[in-house]
Amino acid sequence: MAVWRGLKIGFTIIGTTIGAGFASGREMWEFFTSYGRDSQYSLSLAMVLFFVTVTIVLWMSAKPGISNYYGILRKLMGKRLASIFDILTMLYLLSMSIVMFAGSGATFSEWNFSYAFGVFFIALMVFLVLLFDVDGLMSIQSFIIPILTGVLLFVYIKFLTGDYEGAQTILGNGYVSWPSGITYAALNVVPLIAVVSTLGKELRSKKEIWVSSIVSTGGLALIAILMNSSLLKAGHEIGLYEIPLFALLKGYPTAMIVVVSVILWFAIYTTALSGVYGIVSRISSWFKSPNWLISLVLILIMIPLSNFGFSTLVAVLYPIYGVLNLFVLALIILYPISYKTER
């Protein structure tokens, strides 16, 4: 039972992190593969930092009184600073979720459905799952993530073991790659806290914390290493594709491309689901309304916002998020030391 709970939490963490940017290969290309063969070292650094972060946040979340990300922020930085970061985190999760809604609309447009239908479909799916609160979140992630992971691993292994008549392997661009490992780990820290902080009440033992950390980090590391190796093998031809993953599917039948497209939508969906749940869990501490009602109101607000361009919003908020993420990552890593000092 403990192992199964640990697996479910681990899958939920993967679903929070994997996102459309990760699954499509775009994040991997930008943060790692473009640096060449040395990217494997920075990728390993990112996975180590991810493991440390997940383990510490799970450990903190299992303590009494933690029900959402604000409890974690307060422990990390004190009440006054946590109040500021609370607002920034809320904006981060809101903008991320809205972009995922817009991404679903764009995906459905590519499939010759209307943009609005794609937005309403993901909104409905998010709402239906959140009717069951954290149990619904964990159950759907436990179902989707193994399938998503299996399809991605199939594509990468088949590509790496086959003959590919593409460009030569990328050797490197002469830049130091290890800072990108830190940046990438920091990129995921806020949505990670938002979801993991709500899972603490599901933990019954330290064993579950270790199982969750190992499963989530191991799963992501396996996908990331094979993805990076595949993109390195594909070489500079990756630059011709908006979605690098499709460069690995050149020559595949249409049916396989459709399957991968569906998988990418599920990656968008799991990210949106985690983002909305993170916001709902925080708002529910302010109001005594049921979570399903908060979810409904929040989703109804987000639907029209997904029709606007967010380039300005991203341009203003993302630099702030970058500082926020690096700062929070450093505080999480140092927390065990400060915790022992406090005691």
Results as ranks from 00 to 15, higher is better:
residue 12 T to E: 01
residue 20 A to P: 00
residue 28 M to K: 00
residue 32 F to I: 02
residue 32 F to Q: 00
residue 40 Q to H: 10
residue 40 Q to S: 09
residue 42 S to M: 10
residue 43 L to C: 11
residue 46 A to Y: 07
residue 54 V to H: 11
residue 66 I to V: 15
residue 69 Y to N: 01
residue 77 M to F: 00
residue 86 D to N: 15
residue 88 L to V: 14
residue 94 L to S: 14
residue 103 G to N: 06
residue 108 F to L: 14
residue 118 G to W: 07
residue 130 L to D: 02
residue 131 L to G: 00
residue 138 M to Y: 08
residue 139 S to K: 15
residue 151 V to P: 14
residue 153 L to C: 08
residue 155 V to S: 08
residue 157 I to Y: 06
residue 157 I to N: 08
residue 160 L to R: 05
residue 169 T to H: 07
residue 172 G to I: 04
residue 179 P to R: 11
residue 184 Y to I: 07
residue 188 N to P: 05
residue 190 V to G: 02
residue 195 V to P: 09
residue 197 S to Y: 06
residue 204 R to A: 11
residue 205 S to H: 05
residue 207 K to P: 09
residue 210 W to D: 01
residue 210 W to E: 04
residue 211 V to G: 01
residue 213 S to L: 02
residue 217 T to Y: 06
residue 217 T to Q: 06
residue 218 G to R: 09
residue 219 G to I: 12
residue 221 A to S: 15
residue 224 A to F: 13
residue 237 E to P: 00
residue 244 P to C: 07
residue 248 L to I: 12
residue 255 A to E: 15
residue 255 A to Q: 12
residue 261 S to F: 14
residue 263 I to E: 13
residue 265 W to S: 04
residue 267 A to N: 02
residue 271 T to F: 04
residue 278 G to S: 03
residue 279 I to P: 07
residue 289 S to Y: 11
residue 293 L to S: 09
residue 309 G to V: 05
residue 311 S to V: 11
residue 319 P to V: 05
residue 329 L to E: 11
